[in-house]
Design a protein around this nucleic acid. Structure first.
Lengths: 218, 218
DNA sequence: TAGATTGTTAATCGATTAACAATC
DNA sequence: TAGATTGTTAATCGATTAACAATC
């Protein structure tokens, strides 16, 4: 890493985290959020390790790169650590995302509290089915897919979540890119072709399952 | 790695893959499956790289550790590579899994073709809601949750997919473990406490989104 | 032949882990 | 004080990458 070597505790705000560190910090955030909901106030690196399968030393190392957030013999204060990690990941604000597809999967995503818990706001839901347009999904009314581009520009949406059948996924991706979206979450099985500057994240339960099975079977 | 140094092409069947290699091979499997559906017959390491964001050299390296599967100047034959990776991951057979929760998310999971494409069979679906029991979800009738333990033992199910509200997830996990399940896929937000010998994989779209956002915002 | 892409090497960098002093 | 847990070091291992000869 080309991290600027400055005094610990005030890390070079100019420098990017590595992909690995950012991914792990996000997972700590999720564990902390849930632990807080369960009424806990403190948590140890070992407890975070149990929930994430990330080595406890690694967790302490990740955190201590940004400051001394813990208390020896005690652990980390959950509220305070939540704040610190949000600062590091710069995810304190509200972010607007669009969900495309109001079928079973789309409805399940829209109803989950998990996005709201992390400051992510589902600002619009789209579907082509006239029967679904106008109905509510989660807290958001379903808009006609024809309004996609206009709405995305109006609401300053930078992330699109694709929850449509595989056959329509590429068209949706094209439309999203054309409307200015630069991060696509793909919940379909389809492989998406997009320009270099667009990030596609494909979420695939079967892939993860295959790989978990391998370790069970051997 | 402590891979037995034997002649290439017949890798020490005794040795386990590292977690990283198994995870990447699973992703190649998914790309190959989809590319095949799109009518492609050959694929290059660069194309796989474009879809997975895994470095092309890394892909060639991963594969060449098990044999010379490609043709220089041409690429990899999709069918043949699919077979080779399935052999390596030992996922050629059918595996039975149970889905718990027949709500929106459960229905979406059960209707996805993605499990079947990889030889994973949803052998049973459970719900506590009497209105749902007996109805079909995907191709499987919903069973009463009370039948969980018996069915899991009868059908030799080793994987449980938890798609219930967070409040019920721990109870479901306890019941699954007691019934003999050793791999749990957790689609709820809850943190699950399980014995050491049970693997929990929590799938969390918001976490992945947070981390993708970081790289967009910086 | 010319172009493309694999298989492989070598060098570098980040992740992982054990161990333990510091300290709450 | 005694027990627990952080913060940090040092050593090792795997991942990543560029580069390129081999060869289809």
């Amino acid at each position: 890493m080309s991290q600027t070597l400055d005094t610990k505790g005030s890390v070079g705000a100019s420098d990017r985290l590595t992909v690995g560190v950012a991914a792990r910090l996000s997972r700590y955030l999720q564990v902390l959020t849930q632990a807080k909901k369960m009424g806990k106030e403190r948590i140890s690196s070992q407890e975070i390790s149990d929930y994430t399968n990330i080595n406890a030393t690694q967790i302490r190392r990740d955190l201590s790169a940004f400051g001394k957030f813990g208390k020896r013999g005690v652990g980390y204060n959950i509220d305070s650590l939540l704040g610190e990690i949000r600062k590091i990941l710069r995810t304190q604000g509200q972010h607007n995302i669009a969900l495309i597809g109001a079928g079973r999967l789309g409805q399940a995503i829209a109803s989950s509290p998990i996005f709201a818990e992390h400051g992510i706001n589902i600002a619009a839901v789209f579907d082509t089915d006239p029967d679904k347009v106008g109905r509510g999904v989660g807290n958001v009314p379903v808009s006609d897919y024809a309004r996609l581009t206009d709405t995305i520009r109006e609401k300053n949406i930078i992330v699109g979540v694709v929850a449509v059948p595989a056959d329509n996924a590429q068209k949706v991706a094209n439309d999203l890119v054309e409307s200015g979206v630069r991060i696509i979450f793909n919940y379909s099985e389809a492989l998406l072709d997009v320009p270099q500057d667009v990030a596609v994240h494909t979420s695939n339960p079967a892939v993860e399952l295959l790989y978990a099975l391998y370790f069970y079977l051997t």
